[in-house]
Write a protein that binds this DNA or RNA. Structure first.
Lengths: 228, 228
DNA sequence: TGGTTAAACAATCAAGCGTTCTTTTTTATT
DNA sequence: AATAAAAAAGAACGCTTGATTGTTTAACCA
């Protein structure tokens, strides 16, 4: 056998892409073998090389396309909105909804960056920086206008994005809560966080808080020598 | 050659553990080979089996020990503190400091759960649930006392933990900010978020917000057929 | 209808994988 | 000094991996 009846390059390419996302999401990039991928699509492993140069570029294509899509749609949503609080709301809603409908893509883009070789990783990190820049800009603008109370816009950016992206870790479509309810809950946390909340005590860390100054490694099988 | 001079079982076991954490953190569990690990410690790959049954239990031991350590230390820090706001502060400070000093362990425990086989994963997920339960309890307690304003304690728990844990993605010791400053910044975001902030507008999502109802998959090479 | 191109198969390669087993050397115990 | 136990070496195993090549067949187009 060779070319199968009804075969079509474009359709196969799409099938490979989708199966790739699915398998990488499920098993991780390293753990997914090309034979697995080929079987999922209904091909022999060698045939895959009609559609990509090697395993690495398959991953890169998936991640790059996703990041460009994310960035482009975010910019589109924010276009024309001036008020920082409104922009922050739009950003949160966009980020959450996008992540809720693209669990696999997002998970891959976040987790498999380390599986990209250096040149590819640089491209992806650049795109991610631009995306983070959107939120950081909003926070700085809001702080400048006095509507936000953010000490460290860079740290706050990381914190907020981590929080919003974390939805990928638990959200499943058709759960107890609607997407709107989830968006509301997260947005309330974000808005409250950057508008200062109502700190009943000074925020500086009390010095009497317990601190683990040293990671105490517990040896596997042998009891650690007692130390004074 | 066989047994090397100065060799010592306990020391080697510890070295294997540390090298395992380092390599899994760097390359991922699947991507780390036992020959790599053996080379890092200075052994032959076969010799590793004096110290664990197989690759899987090495991972499980690392993750389980970490989770038990995390849970135990958190409970110890919270012991005796009653006020919900104070408990929340302690939880945030603990979580952040712990994660700042244990980047690799935490990263592994969060990322490699899927590499655990079912029985092992169940154990780890159980431990994680208990840890999340600490925060959820604090939020519920605060809400009951009227000091917090949380709609969905479960969602808020996931959101806050994601945010705090996100520090693993960027923090490096010796950076511009001190640990205290970082803890303050994050804690301010959390406290503000759960104490309501100062919402200048109703928090319900305005219906005119742009929503991507469907993930628009863009085929790789072939232009999508135009649709009306 | 015939020629051309696209699609997929089938076979192969060297390398690397986790794991097991036997042997050798060092350390600890009597 | 003799013996037992511990620690590691080293070789071998059966498999799978990503990658590549040449061949065969179906789809397309003039």
């Amino acid at each position: 056998m060779a070319r199968t009846i009804g075969s079509n390059g474009a359709r196969t390419a799409e099938a490979i892409r989708q199966a790739g996302v699915k398998l990488i999401y499920k098993h991780g990039y390293e753990a997914m073998s090309l034979r697995q991928l080929a079987a999922e699509v209904g091909l022999q492993s060698g045939s895959l090389y009609k559609y990509f140069d090697n395993k690495q570029t398959l991953l890169f294509d998936i991640v790059r396309d996703h990041m460009e899509d994310l960035l482009g749609k975010a910019e589109a949503d924010l276009a024309g909105i001036e008020d920082p609080l409104a922009r922050l709301r739009v950003f949160c809603a966009f980020h959450l909804r996008y992540h809720m409908t693209r669990l696999a893509h997002v998970f891959i883009a976040n987790m498999e960056i380390r599986s990209l070789d250096e040149a590819h990783r640089a491209v992806v990190v650049g795109l991610r920086r631009r995306y983070e820049g959107l939120l950081e800009g909003i926070l700085r603008q809001g702080a400048a206008q006095g509507v936000f109370e953010v000490r460290e816009p860079k740290v706050a950016t990381y914190a907020i994005i981590s929080m919003l992206t974390g939805i990928c870790m638990w959200y499943l479509p058709g759960g107890r809560l609607s997407q709107d309810e989830i968006v509301d809950t997260y947005t309330a946390l974000v808005i409250g966080g950057v508008t200062g909340g109502a700190p009943l005590q000074p925020l500086a860390a009390p010095t009497e808080l317990p601190v683990h100054e040293k990671p105490t490694r517990r040896p596997a099988s042998v009891p650690k020598a007692a130390r004074t």
